[in-house]
Amino acid sequence: MSAIVTITDVVKEYSLGATVVQALRGVSLTVDKGEFISIAGPSGSGKTTLLNLIGCVDTATRGVVEVAGKNTANMSERELTNLRLNTIGFIFQSFNLVSVLTVFQNVEFPLLLQNKLNAKERKERVESLLEQVGLLTHLKHRPNELSGGQRQRVAIARALVTDPLIVLADEPTANLDSETGQAILDLMRSLNQKKGTTFIFSTHDHRVMRYANAVVRIADGKVKGRESPQEAVAHEMELGPDPTLSTEVRAS
C-alpha cells in the first residue's frame, strides 16, 4: 500500500493577538491510498485543523505535510489551489452548495474550474455522479428545494466529480439526523469501495466511527493512536459520550 498522505511532526499554531493557540502539537500520521479513515476526537481536539492541512487550505507552522507526494510547505497559493482542484474533494459539515445554482450546476462547477472536459463530457460525468448518489431526478433543483441529506449527496457528487485521489469530509453528518447520516456514510463507503478513492472524515460521534477501516484518535492536538473502529468505540465509551472542550491556551 502506498501512502497518499504523510504527516510528520506537524505543529499548527494560531496567533490571536498576544496569545498563541497550539491546535496541533506534533502530529504524525500516514494515510494509505484507498483507506476509509476516520479522525475521531472531542470538540476542539484539532480534527478540523488536521483536515485543513491535509486539504491544503492551510499550511503547517512546523513539520512536513505531504499530499499526493508533494510537500505543501513549499507551494504557492496558486499551486495549492490547483492541487486542491485536481487531487482533493471536499465535503463540508454545512454542505456549502452554491445556493443560486442548480444541483447540476453545483456538481459541474469543479469541472468548469478544471476546464478539461467539453460540455457533453461534463454532462455525462455530472449525470453519472448524480446517478450514483441517487439524485438524477433532481438535476434542476436548487439547494433550498432539497433536504439536508439530499444536499450532502449533491456535495458528495461535487467532491467526486473530478475523480480526486482524496476526499475530505469534516464532520459530514453533524448537521444530519442519525438515520440520514448513516445513509450518507453508507454512500461514501460504497463509493470508496467501488472507486478506491481515499476518504478521510472527522467525527466525534462513535456511531459514525464504526464505518471506518481505521480510526485515528486525536485529543488536545495530539494523535492518541491508530485503532480499529471497535477499539475506538470502546475507548470512546470509557471517556464518556461527549467530552468537554479541553484546549490548552498558553502565553507565547
Partner: peptide, 16 residues
C-alpha cells in the same frame, strides 16, 4: 464570505 471560501477551497483561483 462562506461562498467565496468554499469556491476557493474546491479549487477556484482568486481571480475567479
Amino acid at each position: 464570505t462562506q461562498l467565496f471560501g468554499t469556491m476557493r477551497a474546491i479549487g477556484a483561483q482568486r481571480g475567479l
